[in-house]
Amino acid sequence: MTIATTATDLLRRHPSVLIGAAILCAIMVITAFAPWIATHDPMAIDPMVRLRGFSASHWLGTDALGRDVWSRAVYGGRVSLAVGLAVALFATSIGLAVGLVSGFNRVADAILMRVMDGLMAIPAILLAIALMAVARASVTTVIFAITVVEVPRVARLVRSVVLSIREQAYVEAATVVGSRFWRMLWRHVLPNTLAPVTVQATYICAAAILIESLLSFLGAGTPPEVPSWGNIMAEGRTYFQISPWLILAPGLFLATTVLAVNLMGDGLRDMLDPSIARRM
């Protein structure tokens, strides 16, 4: 059986991965082509047409500064997806590194895990807000703040996988026989950790997109001039009775994305060994 047929077979048995990926791709295409799909400059303010309803020139109306809601929602995906994907990437790679080091080195483990425990003990949002206060509000700062919050969770997961693999007989045997450390890492540890970490990455991606919106809600998110689904909703929340589309348009985009990412995650998890799924 070739790799290709294995893959198609797996996908047939776990269609949610496929469906999730398809939806996500569609949304990425929409945001990638935002300049052509949007009807207005998403940042252009027009104080004289504030909070208008649907019209031919503003499909989903305008917000409190007279900006076009449709255009902002379309462009908003760029920031939201960037935050989600970047945090997923950085958090998993840093978490993987930290987890591997502490899985193999006792001294480093003692220090790193205390730091990780400490970071985990501070509620995620509050830690992120405090971090946002340190540097200038920008998309990069948001990514940094949420990454710091998510790293410990990945590190813990990786560490537990490493520890359980090290205990397994074949790895011990391999070590005793004297095969080199890097070989063991490459052959046994990485393949076994990458799978759960990938699944974790999808959940982190979804969580990051949501945390970004909560940060905006609390007044410490991405700069409000730059649209993201989160801050469009946060800025528009006051108007939920007057212009519900201010919340609903980005909200539906965001919900679809989070749903798609979660579908992918759940599907991936089901494809993997249940013992790994158990740690999710």
Binding site: S16, A206, L210, S213, L214, F217, G230, M233, A234, R237, F240, Q241, I247, G251, L254, A255, T256, V258, L259, N262, L263, D266
Partner: peptide, 25 residues
């Protein structure tokens, strides 16, 4: 299975303040 789980995930897909406003409304 898929529909009840999707329902659960749907709740997670909206920021909690949006859910709050909808409930209040």
């Amino acid at each position: 299975d898929r529909s009840v789980m999707s329902f659960a995930v749907l709740g997670f897909s909206f920021p909690v303040f949006v859910v709050g406003y909808l409930l209040i409304y």
